[in-house]
């Protein structure tokens, strides 16, 4: 009895410390393109992400012509495609990472033609058996006929990507799909350009909060700790992509993550 009491006291102390630590950390969704710079290195990078304490992973399937990515991520996509990364490699990657960190949510990201060429339903089946239940498809409007095929799928949910120019009608249509996660563009930039939070962002977030518990992430152009902190104040997590790719190139991934995660 005494023993148990002691142990639970110790547990409490540890828990308290952990809570304090977590409170001092920013919430981040860390993005990575599978197979950049190599498949082997990708495993290493993503494990570093997880060990550093990021909250969510966004793991992108590389595509030859990534229409909505900036130059930095376009290059990384093309490098991964040149490395010959197959869809099978990507599904295995999801499985492996899920085994490494079962509690870290993974959001897949892919351009539409890769899903389409595999077959939308078959892709969703394969994705969910690989342990991933959320997917971002930047060139797929959430109410298009192809999106309906994903929306109908039992185990996979589409993460809508919205921007500050979303009108009320589209907002309602999007919320009717009851997404667990929503990806919001900080402004009208493609990834990797300068960060600037559009004045409409707050209004849209308020409207979403009023009606759902969906977790909202804000991305596009976030590269510094204070930006992450600012985003954490109004949304659930900051989405970091290009800046991590650059850190990989410079071999500074750990220090960059620590800098972005530290809320001070």
């Amino acid at each position: 009895m005494n023993d148990e009491l002691c142990r639970s006291k110790v547990d409490l102390i540890i828990e308290k410390e952990q809570t304090e630590m977590t409170q001092n950390m920013n919430s981040i969704m860390a993005h990575h393109i599978i197979g950049y710079p190599t498949l082997e290195k990708s495993y290493e990078v993503v494990q570093t992400y997880i060990d550093s304490g990021i909250e969510i992973l966004e793991l992108q399937i590389p595509f030859s012509h990534p229409t909505a990515d900036g130059i930095t991520l376009t290059e990384a996509n093309q490098q991964a495609v040149e490395n010959g990364i197959s869809l099978e490699n990507c599904f295995e990657f999801y499985e492996e990472i899920k085994r490494y960190a079962p509690d870290t949510p993974i959001i897949a990201m892919s351009y539409l033609n890769r899903l389409f060429s595999y077959g939308i339903e078959a892709f969703c089946d394969k994705l969910s058996t690989s342990g991933v239940n959320q997917i971002i498809v930047p060139d797929l409007p959430f109410d298009s006929p192809v999106a309906e095929q994903i929306n109908k799928h039992q185990a996979v949910q589409l993460v809508p990507v919205i921007a500050p120019n979303l009108n009320d009608e589209r907002l309602s249509a999007m919320l009717n799909l009851q997404p667990d996660y929503i990806y919001m563009m900080s402004g009208f930039n493609t990834t990797g350009q300068q960060f600037e939070l559009h004045p409409n962002a707050q209004k849209i977030i308020d409207a979403i909060r009023e009606r759902t518990n969906a977790k909202i992430g804000i991305g596009f152009g976030i590269s510094r700790g204070e930006q992450v902190k600012a985003v954490n104040e109004i949304a659930d997590f900051a989405i970091i992509g290009s800046t991590l790719k650059i850190a990989i190139d410079e071999n500074k991934i750990k220090s960059k993550l620590d800098q972005l995660l530290l809320n001070s």
Partner: peptide
């Protein structure tokens, strides 16, 4: 169809 990022919809 119009398979575009939502930001271009308007």
């Amino acid at each position: 169809g119009a398979y575009i990022p939502e930001v271009l919809k308007p």
